[in-house]
């Protein structure tokens, strides 16, 4: 593909949403759209600026990010280690695989009442929800990543007398890393969904709370700001994760 075509694609990609936003703005201004449900983008931007200036938006974003980060650690780290151990040890895999298969299909949002019952309305319940969402994609992808490592690499490790720990460090972990990263990306997406849901039900701050509260007091502009912020967060996460993947897995880059 030529650079010219690529450049054109990029321009089209930027122009399309701008045109659509322009149409939305005009339609709302001229009354073609009901501004109660679809406030014009200018009103949303104005509300965004107000919420930023008052510090309300910043406080909510930080509250959500904190829960998200803690939940990712709480769910992701055990998932990673358990997944690696299961990938290496066949008995462990046989013991734990059925448990994972049985509990994985339960919608995490359906567990929220139980989590609230156990952990109360404090921070812990939200963190646990994110942890539950992060745990499954990471453990499943880690096990698959280790199990799919080409057997010849384990033969090489054996032939060069690598110890169990050395096999783990030099073969299992790096060999499974691409699959683990795919799991982490899914986990972050799942975490964003769950943090929004649990904050709507049981929190006094956070983006999810902000959106739900906006519905209750019918400040539709604020609701849109919340949606916009979640979308931007998801987009930023995917950029950051791509960059991390790029650095962590340099051998996947092409020559």
């Amino acid at each position: 593909m030529s650079a010219e075509v690529k450049g054109r694609d990029r321009v089209v990609g930027v122009v399309t949403p701008i045109v659509l936003l322009g149409l939305w703005e005009l339609a709302a201004q001229f009354g073609l759209l009901d501004a109660r449900f679809f406030p014009p983008p200018s009103a949303i931007v104005h509300q965004f600026a107000t919420l930023v200036a008052s510090g309300e938006l910043g406080a909510n974003v930080i509250a959500s990010l904190k829960r998200l980060a803690l939940g990712m650690l709480l769910g992701g780290v055990p998932a990673l280690f358990l997944g690696l151990a299961m990938g290496i040890s066949r008995p462990l895999r046989a013991a734990i695989d059925p448990l994972i298969s049985a509990t994985y299909p339960i919608p995490k949002s359906a567990i929220l009442p139980l989590v609230l019952l156990i952990f109360g309305l404090g921070e812990m319940s939200k963190v646990v929800m994110v942890a539950l969402g992060a745990f499954y994609p990471i453990i499943i992808n880690t096990v698959v990543g280790v199990a799919n490592i080409d057997k010849i690499y384990l033969d090489v490790g054996h032939n060069y007398r690598a110890s169990r720990w050395q096999v783990f460090r030099t073969i299992a972990l790096p060999g499974a890393l691409p699959s683990i990263m795919a799991g982490v990306k899914l986990a972050v997406g799942m975490g964003l969904i769950l943090i929004a849901i649990s904050e709507m039900v049981a929190a006094n701050d956070g983006i999810g709370y902000m959106i739900w509260n906006a519905w209750q007091v019918l400040t539709v502009d604020t609701m849109y700001v919340g949606l916009l912020v979640i979308a931007v967060l998801g987009f930023l996460f995917s950029i950051v994760l791509d960059e991390i993947e790029h650095r962590l897995i340099p051998w996947k880059r092409r020559a």
């Binding site: 030099t170 073969i171 060999g175 051998w251």
Partner: peptide, 17 residues
Amino acid sequence: RPVNSMIFQGDSLFPWM
């Protein structure tokens, strides 16, 4: 010294190293 080292058939280099 180690007893033996093997040169395998096909690609046996670790792609991540």
